[in-house]
Nucleic acid binder design. Sequence first.
DNA 1: CTTGACATTGACGTTGCGTCAACCTTTAAC
DNA 2: GTTAAAGGTTGACGCAACGTCAATGTCAAG
Lengths: 206, 206
Amino acid sequence: MDLSIQQLAQLSGTTSRTLRHYGDIGLLAPSRIASNGYRHYDQGALMRLQRILLLRELGLGLPAIASVLAHETSPAAALRTHVTLLRAEQARLVRLIASVEKTIAAQEKGEEIMAENMFDGFDHTQHKEEVEQRWGKDAYARSDAWWRGMDAASQQAWKERLATLNGDWKAAASSGVATDSQVSSELARRHVAWLDSIPGTPASTP
Amino acid sequence: MDLSIQQLAQLSGTTSRTLRHYGDIGLLAPSRIASNGYRHYDQGALMRLQRILLLRELGLGLPAIASVLAHETSPAAALRTHVTLLRAEQARLVRLIASVEKTIAAQEKGEEIMAENMFDGFDHTQHKEEVEQRWGKDAYARSDAWWRGMDAASQQAWKERLATLNGDWKAAASSGVATDSQVSSELARRHVAWLDSIPGTPASTP
DNA sequence: CTTGACATTGACGTTGCGTCAACCTTTAAC
DNA sequence: GTTAAAGGTTGACGCAACGTCAATGTCAAG
């Protein structure tokens, strides 16, 4: 098994440039360099490349990959750290998508989004420092992004839905409704339906 | 309203370097440059900056933002394209997270991961395409993302919290609890607290 | 022998700023 | 009046992981 750089590239689904790059930075050396300067790779190099590509898909940087492969000691810690970052990034993407979709929807309704919605944002910004000090940065950032992604009408609608739900729920509780399933399950349905309107909530969990 | 570069940076939550960069690339020119060379920004600049930052949050690149602001014609198409890319990226992240977690789990059990786990990733990819074709891309990405972004323990916790809440709520309703505030407001607090654990839910709505 | 496919090294381009560096202004304090 | 602390300016390099020429050498086939 003696592969040229192109052959290895095609086999592993990457490019020759990448392979030379890995060679340059000492991540994956060719197993042999012919007299004409051509790089050649053997089975061992291929396996190492597989691991490299796997770790790369897992999001590790090339230095990190080199480190892991160098001293094969617990990649677990690195991975654990990394999964945290991935989750954060993933959450951010979810918010981004919801926000973009909301923007598109508003656009399609012919609304001129930008105008006063900006001032909403502005108010929010000034509010921001206070909130951050009282509730912590993370909490603010997370909650703000979703809320801010909505236009005024949607925010109003959200508030109303929450108010209605809470109202019905209280009413049901205080009136001691017909003990069980009919009314309460109806409430539960609406409860779940409302949750579904929150970005990221899975529709099909139970 | 005449803002220095720092003042504008703080107001808008960005940095002076960013503002100078935007000036350099012609995205946001200072409204006035004093005789000493200092940049000054007015209300108009601030509004334009708000739009820039909004579009940036939506993930558009600076040239794209410039284009949108230049000929104010339908950002819808650009956004639509972008949301597609975002979804793809998001789906990829979800797979990444799952894969990393699988790797971690395997590691902790002392297994030598790399070998056949690579094929796991492969399987997963193939599975994904099937699912996407059968259920539609959107549905898959949206419903799956949040849920899958959690580890098993978190999913379990989420289920339990939901079950407990629903249980208490039903119990309260069926037992016709002391008509009002004490118990119901306590439930409401927990209700809200639970909602807060869902990514993106604003903590301080009322 | 020539053509075309594949190899080499070298070096600049990409994205959106962060981060010095070296220097000038304004403000507040002593 | 002097001085030190802030805050301003223009370059210019750095980063992550290669993509993409450019200029040139090598190999197999017609």
